[in-house]
């Protein structure tokens, strides 16, 4: 039974990584940059939801919507102020800027909310499910997280495959100049991508803190790095890749924690990443572009 219950926690944690990884992978796909501040947007989302619930006494669903709106705006502002001026700069300059934005957000949070941990109360309003005479307990948070992850995955896939804006995003991610020549406003498309990624980060933040309720200004950084790993693991730029990478990473992490060693679990996670990249450098679902001339 421990095996199954570990598997469920793994899938649930992995679902959170997957939702965060989607933000990394979409932004990378379109802007060809690693937005290292993405993890901190998660933390901001969690704080906003926390304040809405604890200070304004708003119901959880309203708090989530407010957090999503706040993070969407934050994402658009970060892109417009910090990354857009660097559109033609070297990728190293953009990377350093992203790290700068990350520290800025952490320290701004420290200034606003202080260093004392906040105890996040779960947004999930029903009880855990107990199966097989209580031998197997599935937490309500796990169920909600996995369902949210599946809905987001299906939604995003349909969005990029079926809608005009979604297809435009794919066009921009492949070839900016050609997209521009089709009449697609590349800057607006990049903003939309940041907006979607950041709204997803807010959802991830709320789900993460519902399962692990300690909220501090650095709450987002480790899950951020792990989700980035998940995106690379699955094949950066690929939406199903982010999903698969996230869930596998969650399972590997929980299994190493429970069967090998809690201290070593992060090391094992990253060791698996290195192994995968050695064998398949494009990640699990990353594809090499074949080009005929």
């Amino acid at each position: 039974m421990t095996f199954i219950s570990n598997l469920i926690s793994g899938i649930s944690l992995g679902s959170v990584y997957a939702i965060i990884a989607l933000g990394y992978t979409m932004v990378y796909g379109i802007a060809k940059m690693l937005n290292f501040a993405h993890g901190d947007v998660i933390m901001v989302g969690a704080y906003v939801a926390f304040c809405s619930m604890a200070y304004l006494n708003l119901p959880p669903i309203v708090a989530i919507v407010i957090a999503m709106i706040a993070c969407t705006l934050l994402g658009i502002i970060i892109e417009g102020l910090a990354y857009r001026p660097l559109r033609k700069a070297s990728s190293l300059a953009v990377l350093i800027t992203a790290i700068g934005v990350s520290y800025f957000l952490q320290n701004a949070a420290l200034l606003i909310w202080g260093s004392t941990p906040k105890t996040f109360s779960s947004v999930v309003g029903f009880d855990s499910i107990s199966l097989l005479d209580g031998k197997l307990i599935i937490t309500a948070e796990s169920i909600v997280t996995v369902i949210a992850c599946i809905i987001i995955m299906i939604g995003l896939t349909l969005f990029t495959k079926k809608t005009r804006i979604g297809k435009g995003m794919r066009a921009v991610s492949e070839d900016k100049d050609a997209a521009e020549l089709m009449g697609i406003n590349v800057n607006v498309t990049i903003s939309i991508t940041f907006a979607i990624g950041s709204a997803l980060a807010a959802i991830a933040g709320v789900l993460l803190c519902s399962a692990y309720p300690i909220l501090i200004p650095t709450t987002g950084s480790m899950p951020g790095i792990k989700a980035f790993t998940a995106a690379v693991f699955g094949g950066i730029g690929s939406i199903p890749g982010a999903m698969l990478g996230g869930i596998l990473l969650g399972i590997i992490e929980i299994f190493s924690k429970s069967y090998i060693s809690t201290e070593l679990s992060d090391a094992i996670v990253f060791a698996v990443l290195i192994l995968v990249l050695l064998i398949k450098p494009t990640g699990l679902l990353g594809k090499k572009i074949t080009e005929k001339v």
Partner: peptide, 21 residues
Amino acid sequence: PEGRHVFLQMTVQENLEMGAY
């Protein structure tokens, strides 16, 4: 453009749809 610059990972149909963006 020179070198065609079609969207290589999109289908023929999707490429044409992008033309009518």
